[in-house]
């Protein structure tokens, strides 16, 4: 019974974290262009890191 006292909150917290992560991604427009995102990874950008 004591294990439940922390296991259930932990489980719910992790689930809630996933949910809020998804809602954040949705809100910040990351699902608006799924096809484009798949292609953009192949595009070379010329913003190389400075050394």
């Amino acid at each position: 019974m004591t294990t439940l006292a922390y296991l259930i909150p932990v489980a719910l917290l992790l689930g809630g974290l996933g949910l809020s992560g998804f809602l954040w991604a949705l809100k910040s427009g990351q699902y608006e262009d799924l096809d484009g995102a798949a292609e953009r990874i192949l595009i070379d950008q010329d913003d190389k890191p400075e050394r």
Binding site: G15, G16, L19
Partner: peptide
């Protein structure tokens, strides 16, 4: 987006 949010919330609740 309202529907997708609703699916997400319902999915989270249904799973748990």
């Amino acid at each position: 987006s309202e529907l997708i949010r609703a699916v997400a919330v319902a999915g989270f609740a249904a799973g748990n």
